[in-house]
Amino acid sequence: MINQLRKIYPSLLVYKEGCDHLDRAYKWFVTDDNKIIGIREEELTCKDVALLVTFLNPYTTDLPVLTVEEQKWRKVIQMAELSPTSEFKLENPYRLIYFSFKENQISPILFKDAINELFAKQVSILWENGHEGIIIEEQMMYEECISYEQIIDVLMSDLYVKIKFFVGSFKEELKDINQHYQSLTKAAKTIFSYSNKTVVTYIDAVPYLLIDQTELEARLDISKTVLQDYINDEETLKMIEAFVQCNLNISETSKVLYMHRNSLQYRLDRFLEKTGIDVRQFHHAMAVYLALIARK
């Protein structure tokens, strides 16, 4: 294919590993077999570009060049079904971590440099664009663990950028990785539209993802039916949300809310009297929690 394209676009060149930067005078694409090719922009019309992106992936020059490992991951992720003859060998369990930061705040190359210093082995990063992507983290046996909350603080103090992570669960096989990759990316975008947290795990996200699947009318109905007269009582709802987040622990919640534990007990009793829902019981608390998410 490359030779055929070169006949049409004589400037076409294939990126060679080891070169630091991609020439900005060229428009860059990734082929199906993960080769990065460039064609001089002056040789391309808008129509040409539109046609080329139907069978090639555009490649941004600001993004770090894919390593061999990253190329392998991209290839395996792009496969609709994993071929039994695939040469990709999984050495350790892995998880996918979606990240995003504010557009145009830092260079993706700097981000990658900093991220790589946090792990024992170089991690693969597949970029969606200049400010979003997926980190592929392999589980290493003896590595000192550093949480993503800590990673955010370290990177914020060095890179001056607010980062969000959606952390997937560890997997031991590559089966369905394509689907997993797609659903994780989609879920991340959903979850950050509900939550202000900067690190969300897949497990934390499940209630949000389930509620997001329901029709708007059903969501309204759930929140109205469960929350009843309290649907607009921000103070009480904030208190109940904190109570759920503190594992239904009165002392912990009263500390977090700077509220006397007796006042908290009294307000939870009032909620029970008025709604018949006892949020001290797990299944009632769960229903109220889902209703709170549905209300968002």
Partner: peptide, 18 residues
């Protein structure tokens, strides 16, 4: 933020482990 001439210290005093 990078051009505001500030330095930040956060709650997590994590460092680059390696």
């Amino acid at each position: 933020p990078k051009d505001r001439d500030i330095a930040m210290v956060f709650q997590n005093y994590a460092l680059y482990p390696h």
